[in-house]
Nucleic acid binder design. Structure first.
Lengths: 228, 228
DNA sequence: CTATTATGGATTGTTCAACAATATAAAATC
DNA sequence: GATTTTATATTGTTGAACAATCCATAATAG
């Protein structure tokens, strides 16, 4: 699930390798939401120099995964409601474009079908983690319908940011569960060439998903307040 | 015309300031297309250290304006046909989304109208340079119809890359000339709420523009061959 | 006791100098 | 003339240093 540079990690700049590793840790909760990323600590932890680490921070900051405050340092980004609203606005535009661009025999479409199937089995097994990743993969594949490397690459970044939001939540377990069926229905519509139908379904999907994420975020905020 | 960080250049990290300056030079032709950007030379030229310059390169490289080849250094990106095709595919998706999202009283719409008016006067004066910038501003404003900071910011980067293509061309003079009228027509359709009409016009616009750019790029390639 | 102002310590921002690793150019060999 | 070898320059990365800035604590004034 790139976001991370495609190359085999070797013969890539150290800074990029480090950025990839940190990104992974950010996404699967290796850091706390607003945690400060100390240059000294992390550079020694990763065994690289401060300069190299700073290059990595620059990348992550330009991707919205860490917030860089001048003279204060780098912090784990904690996207709030505004960010979620914005991200779903982006998804609305781009994924609608993807659905409209969907040709019937497109390879990405086949991949979407496969991913739905895998998600269904994962759902039966109760492997929520996997359902989540597969759902993300599904939407990544959808954007590939556009056949635009730039669009796909950037959408990856947006999804990474969204995953950062998920990381802030406690009860991510059933967050993706209701959507497997919707995804399947969407694929069927696309394969049948019922574009207008698919667009409607997508809009419904995104709206539902957005609300669920916002609600979960609200709950989280409430709990955080209680603790303080 | 941001792409460049919004802040007043002061109290921003030096690396970002440098990146902004280099970006400006890249866009208005301060460097040749495939020119090598020597760390030593440029760092001394800008009066910053190599480390700081490298941070700037990382940013520009992640924005597609310079190509970073491991152990070889940074080069001015020279987007080719593939990049142009991709960029226009992106524009198709995003700007179509923008037009669809256009509410009648949206401030961005007002700005679009103003920009068209300014472009018309610039056209009369034969100020091609200005016509070009205003055209870019027009499309930037169009994307603001989405009310999405992320989308706008990223679209800026894509436009910057496109401007880099223009920088490779010799005869950019009349490249934007035919489009002022189309822009005006588009605004009128939007203000009248004729969305479907506007979408069609946009598609026509983008197709024409894409073809013109590709043709100019082809010519350029031919000339380059002749010289070699 | 509260509010404000010093003060000291820690972290970031930036530079410099060094060295290893890699690529480019030139020279030497066949 | 083609290939290998040698030299040279450039990048990749590190470590140490210092100025600038922030933060928390202590000192001071009211």
């Amino acid at each position: 699930m790139p976001v991370t540079s495609a190359l085999p990690a070797e013969d890539q700049s150290l800074a990029i390798q480090v950025a990839d590793r940190i990104r992974d840790m950010l996404i699967d909760g290796g850091f706390s939401p607003r945690e400060k990323l100390s240059e000294q600590q992390i550079s020694s932890q990763f065994g690289v120099s401060r300069n190299t680490l700073r290059e990595a921070f620059r990348l992550l900051s330009s991707q919205g995964l860490v917030e860089h405050i001048p003279n204060r340092g780098a912090f784990v980004a904690a996207p709030g409601e505004a960010a979620v609203l914005d991200i779903y606005r982006v998804r609305q535009v781009i994924q609608r474009g993807a659905v409209i661009a969907a040709g019937p025999g497109h390879p990405a479409l086949k991949r979407m079908r496969e991913l739905v199937a895998q998600a269904e089995t994962a759902l039966d097994l109760g492997d929520w983690q996997k359902v989540g990743t597969l759902n993300m993969e599904f939407h990544r594949a959808m954007v590939e319908l556009c056949d635009s490397p730039r669009l796909s690459a950037w959408f990856d970044l947006v999804l990474a940011e969204l995953r950062l939001v998920f990381g802030q939540l406690d009860d991510t377990a059933h967050l993706h569960e209701p959507y497997v069926a919707l995804n399947k229905s969407l694929v069927i519509a696309l394969e049948a060439g019922r574009i207008a139908d698919a667009v409607t379904q997508l809009e419904v999907y995104l709206l539902k998903s957005e609300r669920a994420v916002l609600a979960a975020l609200q709950r989280q905020k409430g709990q955080a307040r209680k603790l303080a």
